[in-house]
Structures are given as structure tokens and as C-alpha cells.
Design a protein around this nucleic acid. Structure first.
Length: 755
DNA sequence: TAACGACGGGTTTTT
DNA sequence: CCCGTCGTTA
């Protein structure tokens, strides 16, 4: 045991118990900042040193980046051991490829992202002649995704579908699946759904993998969904050595199908489970822990849990009020710059979080203006660019000739004289022959309806792809080069007079570099691996934590990270909590957890910012401070850098007073005294005009129509703008509550003119 | 078939 | 405000 001293010496008794736990299920309830990553890593190393073969250990992390880090740490603690560490999705992809023959799949399948998926649903919708319905492909795709995450098959879905929307989905779901299979493609959900189904239905395979993965470790278990849970469960029947780590207070992916009940039910699901709670926080100051704890305690659906720390008290948590969104961006950047100048922190010690990506724009210009280095953590953005997606589509079509979505994307890029009409004809030919689009293009001579330029174009395209396919043994970056060159895509960009095309050219060249780097890291990796990594990459995967810059990201992306100083922007009602969650208590609680996650990333300093006005969608809106700020303990420090020039404040207060009772509640924030409107001087220089409540025609007794729920009777109306609440009684769906100013209710019978 | 203009519509969070 | 989609025209 003494040679394990380095693994155990610096751990607390609870952590040590978790690391040394032998066989049997183990639940680690790990509060924020309680060192859970360290515990998992040490546990893996401990098992290895105890003689467990690396081959028998599986560790699941939430992002690929986290997986890579864990691999490195394990390698340091127990050199020479190659433990399988990956995300659920990567695991699924790997299993599906590895067991492709046994499961009846082609191992070269393409992984479709959300965009591709939506296109395919749209196709299926049109082919089925259901395109006259007003449900968007996105919405239907979302419903299918949800079904798959709960392991609901198309027939099962059809059996339980009741309303019109569900019946529509039930009609599309099997057709969509058929299209996916014939394109030899998997969507994100398939990577969980198919392995889960295979494990349930194929006992031989299940037993084989169960004994192979004798020890399983899962991080962020509070955010697993049913499909993921089934995978874990099936792999832990003969060898129930499953160790899950999570924190119910940090569950923030319910909207994506994750189910907090899975972690809460762990002890019941896995008999004889041991539970270890890690409540000691090693990350943050007492002030930060207190503020976060008081906030999260407002959640009703919660097992009370105290987070404690021996760290110093630290500075109070700050709430900063800005005049507007631009001031906020500017103010935060300047503060960071000053902290660096004063030597308190480096740039890389700072992070800025926000609820929605759209808020990064104003920050970007503030950073540039003040010469402050920053990185917006959104790794996918580069590969999401049109030009890069085009080039990647060529590569996907090369690895998988059945991939129809990719075919349609590139067949006429650059232009080859192939228009929609010809493609429609090609598609019906392909369907009648039950072959892929590329194969159909190869038989262009047989399709008499297509002639002239289009026929030549398709023939050329097919030749191009055949030619490129013969070069598939080249390393990934060479193949990208060849695609750029032979397809004429690069030439098209080079010869263009459009300035933007110069950028695009640079981007596709950058793609070659990315492929080269990928191959240099490990030159056994193929183009398929490259494409898979890109599709399954998470936002944080591209984040460079070494470089000295301020990190900017969404609250969701901040999970699992920590920074000495954290700023959370736009802590305003409607943004955090987001307006889409306002109608539902459960969703508000998830928003509160999201806020909690953001706050607990901070080690030393925490700033919650909000503005009085914010430009959104080209329009200036007044904002109301978030209820979460109201819920903080009273010893937080309020900062108002704009007290001197009160233009916005006056206008905002006036607006609040003028608007409804609900808004007035929010106006009385206690952050500063409200000046009675009468005692104020008129302010002629004021830019934004104070809006009157728009007449929506919504009033008690009015008949309205909703696209999903049908016709209903308005029972109650209150509030204004984003805070408006409308309660409607529907004939078929009972009473529904709508919140916000984007309610999809059409007034069909107005109230009789006022007498 | 391609290029151009008008239009409407939509923006939470992500593997 | 920006995007993509749709419809018209050359």
C-alpha cells in the first residue's frame, strides 16, 4: 500500500474512501469544487496499480477535452496504461464501428449533425407529402430526437401518439429512420440509441462487453439521459462495478433529455450501492460559496445539501448595474484590464459567462477596442462555416458514397450547371433503383430526362469522386488538399472578386492545417476519424487554457471549469432565467442551477452584471434585474458605476412605474431608492422613448387560436412585455399559461367594443 | 439554370 | 438585425 502514498496522501478521508472503494456500485455526490475530477483520476490509477487491466476500465466524461485530460493524468499516475476514456457519444460511435458487421451496419457511416438531421427530416417530410403542415422540420426533428433518447421506437411512438403534432411525428419518424439507414448515416442520438438497443436485444454482445468493461466510471452523472443510462445499466449486470460521480445541483441539460432522476435513483437501481458525499469545497472563497448556496436553496425540488469551505472569506460577491449592454461589455473589459495592470490577476485568470451566445458580440468589440486578448469558446464555429462545411461534405461523401445530404451539398459547389430540376429527377431515379445519389450520377446515361449541361455536370462530378476515391489511402491533410484542388473549389474562391471569398480561401487552407495537425498527433488516424472528431467536438474542446487571454463562454460551456475571477453578464429577467423557462417552475429551477454552476466556477472574485437597457434584435429594450439577484444574501456588494449620469436609470425607472403591476414589483429591487416620478425633471435629451404597452387585443374573455392547442378562451391576463402572463383555457388541452411577449396566440374573436 | 431582390421569420442552452 | 428561403426575371 505504501507505493500508493502519492495517490492518497493529499486526500481527505471521504475522497480516499472513494478512491479505494473496490467492487460494487458507488455513488459519489460531489458538490461543486469538491475535487471530483481528481478523485476519479486517482481511482482509475489506484485500480490499475491494484492489478486491474487497463483494458477492463471504461471512463466516461462529458466532453472530449475532459477525456483527453483524464487520459493524460492517468498516464502520469500509472504510466503505460491505455485506459478507454471518452464521452458517451464517442463510445457509441466506436462500438458501432467496431461491431458494425455483427449489428448489420456499414462501419463507414457518416455522423450527421443537427443541421444535416434537419435537412433529412425536411426531405422525409416532403417525400411523405406532409409538407403542407406548419410544423417546422426542426420541431419534428426535436421530437424524434427526444423519442430516441428515451429509447422509443417508431412503432412505439405511433402507438402512443395522440394529438395532431405527435401523429405527424409518428408518420415522419420511420421514414426519417429509413433515410438515415439508406444514407448509411447516424444522427447524434443514434450513437446512444443503437448501442443501447443492441445491448438490450443481443445478450451475447451485452455479456461480452459487460465483462470487458469490468470497471466503469462516469462523470457528470446528473446529466445522463435514458439511453445513456441503459448503456451503463446493461454493461453493469455481471460486473456491477460502476462508479458514478455527479451533483444534482449542477444538472443543466434537461432540455436535451437528461434526467435528474437517474442520479437520484442510483441507490435503488444498483443494490448494495455505497454512497459517498463530498461536501467540502476547495475552490472558492466563503463569500462565493455562501452566495451560491443561498441561491440554490431557493430550489424546491432539491435535497438539501450544504457546501462548506475552509477557504478565506474573500471579497464580497459583486452585483454591478450598467446603463446598457455596451457599457456592460466595456465596463467588464476595462475592469479586467485594470486588474491585470494592478498585477492582481493575469488575463487568463478571468472568464466571462453568459446565458446566450448572441451576447458575445458587444464584448468582442470592447476587447478589440481595449486591446485585451480574449478567446470566445465556441470551437465549432470554424468548422461550421459554409466553406468548411462544403469541403467536409466532399470528404464525407468520399468516405460514405451513400451520404445523400453531403452529395446535395457539394454536387453543384462549385457550379456545374446542375439545378434543382435535374436533382429532383436524379433523386426519383435513385429512389426507384434503391441506390444512392452518387451511384445514380454514375448511371447518368440511363436517366434520359436529364440532358445537356446538367448531364455533363453530373457525369463530371461522378468521375471526380471516383478519381478522389482512389486516393483514399492518403493521409487526411493530403486528401483535403486533393479535394480542394481537383473539385475546383479552391479555384472558385481564388478567382472570385468577392472580398469575403478571400477569407473563405484562408479558412479552407486552415482546414488543411487542422487535418495535418490531427494526423501529426497520431498518424494511424484516418479521414473518418478526422470527420468524426469534428462532428463530435464540443464547444470547450477548442479552448486553449494555456494562453494568456480572457475566456468567454456560455454558462453551459463553463461546467467543470474554474477561474480566479468570474463575470456573469446579463443577469436579467428574461435572459437568466431565460424567458422561455419563465412559465414553468421546473425550468426556472434549472435556470437557477445554471446560475449556480456559473457562480461556483469562481475561485476568488465573482461579478454578476446586469444592464438597465439592452439592444436586442435591433431594438432597445428595458431590462429588469434577475430574480436570482434578488435571491442572493444581503451582504453582496452593489456597484453602480453610472450613478453620476442617470439618464438610463431615470428612463428605466419611469418605464417600470408606467408599466404594469408585475413590472413594478421588479422595479422595487431594493438596489436603490426609487425616485417618485413627480419629483423628477423631464429629460429632453433622452434617446429611447418610453414604450406604451402594445395593444395585443388579449383580454379576459377573448377567443384565441394557438397553432398547437387550437381554440381557447382567455381566462387571465397580467403583466407587460416579457413579463406578461396569459392564461388560456383550451377546449381540448385544458388551461395553459403563456409568458412573455412572443406568445403565439391569434385573437380570433375580440371582446365586444367597450360600452 | 443562375442571379437577384423581396419577403418573412426567428435566435437558449449542445453531443 | 441577420439569416435563409422563396419567387421573379434574364
Amino acid at each position: 500500500m505504501s507505493d500508493d502514498a502519492d495517490l492518497l496522501a493529499d486526500l481527505t478521508p471521504d475522497q480516499r474512501a472513494a478512491v479505494m472503494h473496490g467492487e460494487g456500485p458507488l455513488l459519489i455526490l460531489a458538490g461543486a469544487g469538491s475535487g471530483k475530477t481528481r478523485v476519479i483520476t486517482r481511482r482509475v490509477a489506484y485500480l490499475l496499480r491494484a492489478g486491474v487491466r487497463a483494458h477492463n476500465i471504461l471512463a466516461i466524461t462529458f466532453t472530449n477535452k475532459a477525456a483527453g485530460e483524464m487520459k493524460n493524468r492517468v498516464e502520469k499516475l500509472a504510466p503505460g496504461n491505455r485506459v478507454w476514456v471518452s464521452t458517451f457519444h464517442s463510445l457509441g460511435a466506436r462500438l458501432l464501428r467496431q461491431y458494425a458487421e455483427r449489428l448489420g451496419f456499414d462501419r463507414n457511416f457518416t455522423i450527421y449533425d443537427t443541421d444535416d438531421r434537419n435537412k433529412l427530416v425536411k426531405d422525409a417530410l416532403e417525400a411523405a407529402g406532409i409538407d403542407n403542415v406548419k410544423f417546422t422540420p426542426e420541431r419534428i426533428a426535436g421530437a424524434i430526437s427526444k423519442a430516441k433518447n428515451q429509447l422509443v421506437t417508431p412503432p412505439q411512438y405511433e402507438r402512443t401518439a395522440t394529438d395532431f403534432f405527435q401523429k405527424t411525428v409518428a408518420a415522419v419518424y420511420p421514414r426519417y429512420e429509413k433515410r438515415l439507414r439508406s444514407a448509411n448515416a447516424m444522427d447524434f442520438d443514434d450513437l446512444l440509441y443503437l448501442p443501447a438497443m443492441a445491448l438490450k436485444q443481443n445478450e451475447e454482445l451485452r455479456a461480452e462487453l459487460d465483462s470487458r468493461f469490468r470497471y466503469i466510471m462516469i462523470d457528470e452523472y446528473q446529466d445522463t439521459n435514458s439511453a445513456q443510462y441503459q448503456i451503463v445499466k446493461q454493461l453493469s449486470i455481471n460486473n456491477p462495478n460502476v462508479c458514478v460521480v455527479g451533483d444534482p445541483d449542477q444538472s443543466i441539460y434537461k432540455w436535451r433529455g437528461s434526467d435528474i432522476k437517474i442520479i437520484l435513483d442510483f441507490e435503488r437501481d444498483f443494490p448494495n450501492a455505497r454512497t459517498i458525499t463530498l461536501a467540502q469545497n476547495y475552490r472558492s472563497t466563503k463569500s462565493i460559496i455562501r452566495a451560491a448556496s443561498v441561491l440554490i436553496d431557493h430550489n424546491k425540488q432539491r435535497k438539501k445539501k450544504d457546501l462548506v469551505t475552509d477557504n478565506p472569506q474573500g471579497e464580497p460577491v459583486n452585483v454591478i448595474t450598467f446603463d446598457n449592454g455596451l457599457d456592460e461589455a466595456e465596463g467588464v473589459v476595462v475592469r479586467i484590464k485594470e486588474a491585470v495592470k494592478a498585477g492582481t490577476f493575469k488575463y487568463r485568470d478571468h472568464a466571462i459567462f453568459m446565458r446566450i451566445n448572441a451576447l458575445t458580440r458587444s464584448l468582442e468589440s470592447a476587447f478589440v477596442k481595449h486591446g485585451v486578448p480574449f478567446q470566445i469558446v465556441k470551437g465549432l464555429a470554424f468548422f461550421e462555416r459554409k466553406e468548411n462545411r462544403d469541403v467536409l461534405a466532399y470528404l464525407r461523401l468520399l468516405t460514405n458514397p451513400h451520404d445523400g445530404v453531403s452529395f446535395l451539398r457539394v454536387v453543384n459547389a462549385p457550379a456545374r450547371g446542375i439545378g434543382k430540376v435535374s436533382l429532383d429527377k436524379l433523386q426519383s431515379f435513385a429512389a426507384s433503383q434503391e441506390i444512392g445519389l452518387l451511384a445514380a450520377a454514375g448511371q447518368i446515361a440511363k436517366i434520359t430526362e436529364i440532358k445537356g449541361k446538367a448531364a455533363t455536370g453530373l457525369r463530371d462530378f461522378h468521375r471526380l469522386m471516383t478519381d478522389l476515391r482512389s486516393k483514399m489511402d492518403q493521409p487526411p491533410h493530403e486528401l483535403v488538399r486533393l479535394v480542394l484542388d481537383k473539385s475546383g473549389y479552391e479555384a472558385m474562391l481564388r478567382d472570385s472578386t468577392d472580398e469575403e471569398d478571400a477569407d473563405r480561401l484562408a479558412n479552407v487552407s486552415e482546414l488543411v492545417t487542422a487535418a495535418k495537425q490531427f494526423w501529426d498527433e497520431d498518424n494511424s488516424r484516418t479521414i473518418t476519424d478526422f470527420l468524426e472528431q469534428i462532428t463530435l467536438a464540443s464547444d470547450t474542446d477548442g479552448w486553449d487554457e494555456q494562453a494568456d487571454h480572457v475566456s468567454v463562454m456560455t454558462l453551459h460551456a463553463s461546467k467543470g471549469l474554474e477561474f480566479p475571477a468570474v463575470y456573469i453578464l446579463a443577469v436579467e429577467q428574461g435572459l437568466l432565467p431565460h424567458e422561455r423557462s419563465l412559465a414553468n417552475d421546473e425550468e426556472i429551477e434549472e435556470e437557477r442551477r445554471l446560475c449556480f454552476v456559473g457562480m461556483t466556477r469562481a475561485m476568488k472574485e465573482l461579478y454578476l452584471c446586469h444592464a438597465r437597457m439592452r439592444e436586442f434584435r435591433g431594438q432597445l429594450n428595458y431590462c429588469i434585474v434577475s430574480q436570482f439577484i434578488q435571491e442572493l444574501p444581503r451582504d453582496v456588494r452593489f456597484i453602480d458605476p453610472s450613478m453620476a449620469r442617470n439618464v438610463a436609470r431615470t428612463a428605466a425607472d419611469e418605464w417600470r412605474v408606467k408599466s404594469s403591476a408585475a413590472a413594478k414589483d421588479w422595479a422595487d429591487t431594493g438596489l436603490r431608492p426609487l425616485i417618485p416620478p413627480a419629483s423628477r425633471k423631464p429629460n429632453p435629451g433622452l434617446k429611447p422613448t418610453i414604450p406604451d404597452a402594445p395593444d395585443t387585443g388579449l383580454a379576459v374573455g377573448v377567443l384565441v387560436q394557438h397553432e398547437e392547442f387550437g381554440i381557447g378562451n382567455v381566462a387571465e391576463v397580467s403583466g407587460f412585455g416579457a413579463l406578461r402572463k396569459v392564461r388560456v383555457r383550451f377546449a381540448a388541452h385544458g388551461v395553459k399559461l403563456f409568458v412573455g411577449d412572443k406568445i403565439k396566440l391569434k385573437v380570433i374573436v375580440r371582446k365586444k367594443a367597450e360600452e
